[in-house]
């Protein structure tokens, strides 16, 4: 497993304490998991996705990630409707391990961007990881 100083945590993303990230992209936003999360899980073998059109509120579980011996729920960083899921992950879940930022999980239409203020910056997220 990586040491904390080995993690790739890009600037400009909003992180959650559950180790997801969100990036606003026009009037939609894309959501994925952090390098820390993929490293902790290990080899991801399955990504369970919501259906397009499903709506979730901030912090609600929208799917799961499975490795061989662990399961981790994924929580939506912002309230909103799922507008797209990353289909490539169905056949190649290992892409999340390769690059968890390039290989996002879902694209949403956020309901309320003011919710961003409840999320963490890179520095705040690092503080969380350092405990």
């Amino acid at each position: 497993m990586k040491e904390i100083n080995e993690l790739n945590l890009p600037e400009g993303l909003h992180y959650t304490k559950d180790h997801e990230w969100v990036r606003v992209d026009g009037d939609t936003a894309i959501v994925g998991i952090s390098d820390y999360a993929q490293d902790q899980l290990g080899d991801i073998v399955y990504v369970e996705m919501p259906e397009v059109g499903n709506e979730f509120s901030q912090g609600e579980e929208f799917g799961t990630l499975e490795s061989v011996k662990a399961v981790s729920e994924t929580y939506l960083p912002l309230s909103g409707e799922i507008v797209e899921v990353n289909e490539a992950l169905a056949d190649a879940p290992e892409l999340v391990n390769k690059d968890p930022y390039e290989n996002w999980l879902v694209r949403i239409k956020p309901a309320d961007l003011s919710e961003l203020s409840a999320l963490l910056s890179v520095d705040e997220y690092l503080d969380l990881l350092n405990g």
């Binding site: 399955y46 499975e66 011996k69 399961v71």
Partner: peptide, 12 residues
């Protein structure tokens, strides 16, 4: 596919 099973997913 053990992640379906009780020793990993417990109550779920």
């Amino acid at each position: 596919l053990s992640t379906r099973e009780q020793h990993i997913r417990r109550e779920k």
